[in-house]
């Protein structure tokens, strides 16, 4: 249908934009604004906050790391000192007072001047490496015992019987030897050639016994 509007222009109805368009414009503007607002909140609010929190945590981490490093350094130093202490302790407890053992052995051989029980004189004495796991070191004595095998046995027994001396040893070789005739116009003219090894206990055996 053809529409003719004969009204003068000032009396004509004004033509506005279509309602749909307006609604869509308004809605679009609202949506765009909301989206901008949401993005702004996420970006400048949440993200910034998290980034700030992370930065703070990183700073704390740096400080705590320094403390942890210091703690590790202290631990390393403590371990080093502990090692030194153990070494010093080991040095002190691994000591054998050979002057005492030799002095006691000389007393046994002298036997307060009694030459009837046994008459022994040595050709040599030396320390040896241990023969068993419970004996790190030994004492080797070689020499002659005048008289009969029973004199040699008496000497061997005396060694074991002298508690002060023998407590530091685990065992002594049994009384065995070879009889020799000594052609030197001295008395006795027969002697038994012997070689005994005495197995020494670990130097700190008394301490270990005390701890038990």
């Amino acid at each position: 249908m053809i529409r003719v509007n004969l009204l003068p222009p000032e009396y004509r109805k004004v033509d506005g934009p279509p309602v749909g368009r307006v609604v869509s414009l308004v809605a679009s503007a609202f949506l765009v604004a909301s989206a901008l607002g949401a993005w702004g909140y996420v970006h400048f609010g949440m993200l910034a906050e998290e980034e700030g929190r992370r930065a703070q945590l990183e700073e704390e981490l740096t400080q705590i790391k320094q403390q942890a490093d210091r703690s590790q350094a202290l631990l390393r130093e403590f371990d080093e000192y502990q090692r030194r202490r153990e070494t010093i302790e080991k040095i002190g407890t691994s000591r054998i007072l050979w002057s005492r053992k030799l002095d006691e052995m000389a007393d046994i051989i002298h036997n307060k001047g009694d030459q009837k029980e046994f008459l022994v004189w040595l050709s040599g004495m030396r320390s040896t490496s241990g023969r068993t796991s419970d004996s790190p070191v030994g004492l080797h004595i070689q020499g002659l015992c005048g008289g009969s095998l029973s004199n040699l046995s008496a000497f061997n027994y005396k060694i074991k019987e002298t508690k002060e001396f023998f407590d530091d040893f685990t065992r002594v070789d049994p009384p065995a030897g070879t009889q020799k005739l000594l052609d030197d116009k001295k008395w006795p003219n027969k002697a038994w050639d012997f070689s005994f090894i005495l197995d020494h206990k670990h130097p700190n055996w008394r301490e270990k016994q005390g701890q038990q």
């Binding site: 002298h110 004189w121 116009k185 001295k186």
Partner: peptide, 19 residues
């Protein structure tokens, strides 16, 4: 170490002459 008077040397033959 205590001094030991009259203790013989354990590495010396202590036997006496029977002449």
């Amino acid at each position: 170490l205590k001094p030991r008077i009259n203790r013989r040397d354990p590495l010396v033959d202590p036997r006496r002459s029977q002449a």
